[in-house]
Design a binder for these strands. Structure first.
Lengths: 180, 180
DNA sequence: ATCCACATGTAAGGCGTTACATGATTGG
DNA sequence: CCAATCATGTAACGCCTTACATGTGGAT
């Protein structure tokens, strides 16, 4: 009777409106993706499991010969989602290869450190660019609703700024040392 | 001949000095843990694999009857680490249940949204507290070296601040609406 | 004596990605 | 008619965590 973390993403999305697995994946890719990704290989089996547990119900769309299956939340699924939403968040993880390289470069030359900072900041800039695109596509009314999108943009801007500030500090210290 | 991401953590740590698996785990827990965790169940098998590939070499510590095995980087391992350090970082992931709940609460009442913001910010505060403890234990000279520790503290402070600012905005908008 | 820290390792299982397999529909 | 998109699903595999199993050494 256990539900995987990604199961709750599915439940939460279906809480807004019925959708197919394909549509769920599309939504995830332009929303939760940056803090909770999910692939087809997870979504389809997950829908089946949730269906077995009667938390969602899937109906074949008869109007479509494509074999679409539209899933909706059951009352039981709704209660399960509510309970989960009330519980305090547990997982808060980060896996950042740039930060790892910066750490492992401790003791290396200022130039090396600066290079890692540059790459880390560049990555953050890239994420900002992609999130801005998504926001643009959403349109103004909807976008104001998107707190998480705003979080993603502002946090990555902060990260890029932090990297730049540390690079400048290094350059300053380096110049002073050379002058001395 | 593939090396797992965590394999590079091990390689990078051994690059500073020879260590046992146990010591690697201890170091990870007070350093990379917040952006790249690793458990015993990964470290020991990983040391074996790296050893099989001649990237590290392990020597039984004869002075200790405890069966300690001290590993050190081989020249081949050093080259492999260098190559990896030169490559641009690829993984940049985040898994944040608080942010997920905030997203799934879109459309809920301002009070609900504010609650999620509070929990998310509280989590960030907790991380800041733990990282500060670690910094204190390190002592001043070493701590100045710890760019990543500083990043962890400052980023989580920023996150906590962001959550508070959004909470205040919500409270303000709410008051205005009630007054109208 | 007993407990904690040191120390190594394995097994089972969860979670997730990638790649593959298959086919329908729509727009140019 | 062809390509892109819609649409569902599975298989293999990688990574990681948790729990277990085992034992030593030092401090109280």
């Amino acid at each position: 009777m256990e539900i995987s973390p990604t199961g709750y993403v599915v439940l939460g999305i279906l809480n807004w409106q019925p959708r197919t697995g394909y549509e769920i994946k599309q939504l995830v890719d332009r929303s939760t993706r940056f803090f909770w990704a999910a692939s087809y290989g997870q979504i389809y089996p997950e829908l089946k499991r949730l269906s077995d547990q009667r938390l969602v119900s899937g109906k074949a769309d008869l109007k479509s010969a494509r074999g679409r299956k539209v899933y909706r939340l059951t009352p039981k699924g709704h209660r399960e989602l509510d309970r989960w939403m009330q519980r305090p968040p547990e997982t808060f993880e980060m896996r950042n290869e740039g930060l790892l390289k910066l750490f492992l470069a401790t003791g290396d030359s200022p130039e090396e450190i600066a290079r890692h900072l540059g790459e880390m900041g560049g990555n953050a800039d890239d994420v900002v660019a992609r999130l801005r695109e998504i926001r643009e596509e959403l349109g103004a009314e909807q976008a104001s609703d998107q707190l998480c999108l705003r979080f993603g943009i502002e946090m990555n801007e902060w990260i890029a700024g932090w990297c730049q500030r540390r690079q400048r500090e290094l350059a300053g210290a380096d110049t002073k040392k050379r002058a001395a």
